[in-house]
Amino acid sequence: MRISYLHGLIGTPTEAPILSALDGAGLDAAVLHLPGFSGTEPDPSTRTIADWTFALSAAIDDAGVTGAPILATSVGAMVALELAAIRPEAFSQIVAVAPLGLWDEADPIADPFAVTLSAQRRLLTTDPTVTAPFFDDPDDLSGDALIEHGVSRYQTRTAAASLVWPIPEFGLAQRIHRVSTPVTILWGADDQLAPPSYLDRFAQSLPNMAGTHIVEEAGHLADWDQPVAVAEATAKALAGR
């Protein structure tokens, strides 16, 4: 099945384990990148949630996956829901892994950028070694290539910060009732960034919930902690099982 995949806070390096896991689950994923993520050119004019939503709209059109299902995670899931609210034909189904976009003062989402880099790494996944393709420098790079790798990582983090600054709530609550697309929500059981209680908030707000699923032994970036489980849950949701 042809789907699209949209990253979370650390983009999609080519070594991201979710890509092979999706392939293994029989899903042919077009990998989408928002501007500035994973080595793509930052777009200084992408400033507001409307800009990011337009960027995703263009990305699915350019990739030829408009109307296909999407697996999106974290900030990517937030933008996918925003797009679905204003463009119902964008996706046939949405599988959202720990989407951001809602806010509860009594149960706030942690600030992923008011921490050191090592602490951020521990915050995003239960096993910090799984995100090595993003956080660690490749052994085979040196000199200018290594510097540019670092710049690319910094630009990914910059783009991610733009999507959560200062609070990852940009009015989705006012628009979410317009999301008519069927949505399945997955959430890491050990998410330290966005409390799993937000799963209930999304489930109560979305008018066409297709299902929910807790991913065991996974943090906020469940697709990095448990790529196979996420891929299989996605395939199951898309098959209507």
Binding site: F113, A114, R157
Partner: peptide
Amino acid sequence: YAGFADPPGYKTANTVR
């Protein structure tokens, strides 16, 4: 606290470089 001193995007790409 070091987590407050270097948020991504505060530095320009040239400074990172």
